[in-house]
């Protein structure tokens, strides 16, 4: 079963990479990059169990948090064009332009 789960995750990773490479617009790539991160976390867990040493789940935790942080950073940059902007103070400011 571990093997099946690992292979499923690898296949899903291939699909996500394909989407990241092909992706028509930037949001597809963003979503695909985030998916790759999440799948990396899952792969890490499954691979740990497959190899019989499931102790490095700390790293999976790090990955998960970093993945979220990275994606949100990118989104924030993309939305506001700046990393140090305070989103709450420009409600209704439509910078989609």
């Amino acid at each position: 079963m571990y093997l099946f789960a690992t292979i499923a995750i690898l296949i899903a990773m291939c699909c996500a990479v394909a989407r990241a490479v092909v992706g028509p617009n930037i949001f597809d790539r963003m979503l695909a990059a985030n998916t790759i991160g999440s799948l990396a976390v899952l792969l890490l867990v499954c691979f740990g169990f497959l190899m019989g040493r499931p102790e490095w789940l700390d790293i999976a935790l790090t990955y998960g948090l970093l993945n979220t942080a990275a994606t949100l950073t990118v989104l924030k940059y993309y939305r506001h064009g700046d990393l140090s902007v305070d989103a709450d103070h420009e409600k209704g400011a439509d910078d989609a332009g």
Partner: peptide, 21 residues
């Protein structure tokens, strides 16, 4: 775990087959 793997596969199928973001 098998069910989880199955759902991951289905999601992967969706990632390449569905039409928009």
């Amino acid at each position: 775990i098998g069910a989880g793997g199955l759902f991951v596969l289905i999601g992967a199928l969706g990632i390449i087959r569905l039409p928009d973001v």
